[in-house]
């Protein structure tokens, strides 16, 4: 049975949470990992929708450190209070 965008968003959120502080994941990395994990239930379009959900509801944010990544919201290292 095909997965829903919400289910994929949850799985992506777990991956991002597990990787936080260890590895920065690009949106493409998340897509590949999801398609590997659920080969017959997920496609790129669904992954795209899941990332949009994650970012729009604030569970994850886009970051830029030489390239664009998806991370949990956190205090910026360079930020001045």
């Amino acid at each position: 049975m095909a997965k829903t965008a919400e289910e994929i968003a949850d799985a992506m959120f777990k991956m991002v949470s597990d990787a936080q502080g260890l590895k920065k994941l690009k949106p493409g990395d998340l897509n590949k990992l999801m398609i590997q994990t659920y080969p017959d239930e997920v496609d790129k379009k669904l992954c795209k929708a899941a990332i949009k959900l994650l970012v729009n509801n604030g569970r994850c944010v886009y970051t830029y450190f030489g390239g664009s990544f998806i991370e949990l919201p956190h205090r910026e290292g360079a930020a001045n209070d």
């Binding site: 729009n56 604030g58 944010v61 886009y62 830029y64 919201p73 956190h74 360079a78 001045n80």
Partner: peptide, 23 residues
């Protein structure tokens, strides 16, 4: 200093973060 997180809700582009190191 280069800020990597600042932006507007939902968007991953359009804002380039900059902070001074002499605040």
């Amino acid at each position: 200093k280069h800020g990597g997180i600042v932006g507007v809700m939902g968007y991953g582009g359009g804002v380039i973060g900059r902070y001074s190191d002499l605040p």
